[in-house]
Amino acid sequence: MNIKLIIAAMLAATSMAAHAGKDMQALMDKAIAESFKPGEGQDLSRLKQDETQMLCSTSRNSPSPKDAEALMTREKATIQYPADGKLMGDWKQGEKLVKSGFGMRIGSIEPDPPAKQKGGNGGNCYACHAVDPKEVAAGNMGPSLTGYGKLRGQGEDIAKYTYEKLYNAQAFVACSNMPRLGHNGILKPAQIADITAYLLSSESPVNK
């Protein structure tokens, strides 16, 4: 083997090692920065991860017990309550929010129509959960919520838990698939109270 070949082989090995050792986070950041363009209707801030999103991504939704504990404590501290303090709102309003999958879609190709935006975002609950037993087109990403209040009653504790779970699911399950509806600004505290009432109230179709 001549010296040129040896040098070439060493250079090739170095270049391979540089690839294998490259920080994946830096590679991802670069790819994201090059792959989404600023412009009308775009919101590049949505691509910036918070601490929780980053931890759940790198751990593939299985953080260490210590990290999971810190995550849930941090998320719990984000929870805000309605101004009037009532965690059980209007279940009929809640029903509309549970059914609606509208909101938050952006970009230049198919952004939410402005006329519809006035109605506000929905909770999009049926994408993942069975709720009213009469609605058959329910997803199964999350557990069935049919009979939720009938099983659990309407006490203060369950109302508080339900409200808080809806506001920030990751306060209870680290790296839950469920969006942090309140914390991420999809729904307002009063709307979350309405959904809480829809799930708990004995009048609600959920519990019939």
Partner: peptide, 9 residues
């Protein structure tokens, strides 16, 4: 596996 945006998806 990269979660991002208002839905945490």
């Amino acid at each position: 596996w990269r979660r991002t945006g208002p839905m945490d998806f």
